[in-house]
């Protein structure tokens, strides 16, 4: 339950964010589900992996996969699902503690927390880049293959005539 409750909170927050971003009524639930998926991945892999930088990357991969699939299924921009699901992964806590250590005069602790926060945001970005680039690549390959098939089809059609 301690692992599952944050997922529910992330879902609630994402649902409210979807309203603030003014997403259409029939897509509210699906876009909020993205935040849930990200936290669920985070919580599940937490049982195996202890490093929260890698965990953030895995969660980012999960939400971008979800966003790409949902975008294809409902034929709407990926951003609608991705932007909402991304927010629970943003290291707000790290940002705050970095600032707190600095104003407390603890520069060493502040620097190490700051670098950790930066690494987490970098990991989230890498996760999104990995998935989006692979999706773009597969789409290009599929389009090329479709064109090749069409060309072959035309040739086959024309051959008996000529």
């Amino acid at each position: 339950m301690t692992y599952f409750l944050p997922c529910l909170y992330a879902f609630g927050a994402s649902y409210a964010f979807a309203i603030v971003f003014n997403i259409k009524k029939n897509k509210l639930l699906f876009s909020a589900l993205g935040g849930f998926v990200g936290q669920l991945t985070f919580a599940l892999f937490q049982l195996i992996i202890g490093n929260d930088i890698i965990l953030s990357m895995l969660a980012a991969i999960a939400i971008s996969l979800y966003a790409e699939i949902m975008a294809r299924a409902t034929s709407s921009p990926t951003t609608i699902y991705l932007a909402i699901a991304l927010i629970p992964l943003v290291p707000g806590g790290g940002m705050y503690y970095t600032m707190l250590y600095f104003i407390n005069g603890d520069a060493d602790l502040g620097l190490s927390t700051g670098i950790h926060t930066l690494l987490i945001s970098g990991a989230v970005a890498v996760g999104i880049i990995l998935v989006s680039s692979s999706v773009m690549l597969t789409r290009k390959i599929m389009i090329r293959r479709k064109l090749a098939v069409r060309k072959q089809f035309k040739q086959d059609k024309n051959e008996p005539l000529s």
């Binding site: 964010f17 951003t79 932007a83 909402i84 927010i87 943003v90 705050y96 503690y97 999104i128 680039s133």
Partner: peptide, 26 residues
Amino acid sequence: MNTIIIGSIMTLVPGLVITNAIRDII
């Protein structure tokens, strides 16, 4: 106190800007 502050500033986090920045660079 820290928890409340972190939770409240998450409302201000620029999620859409970050997403668009990453996607534009790709």
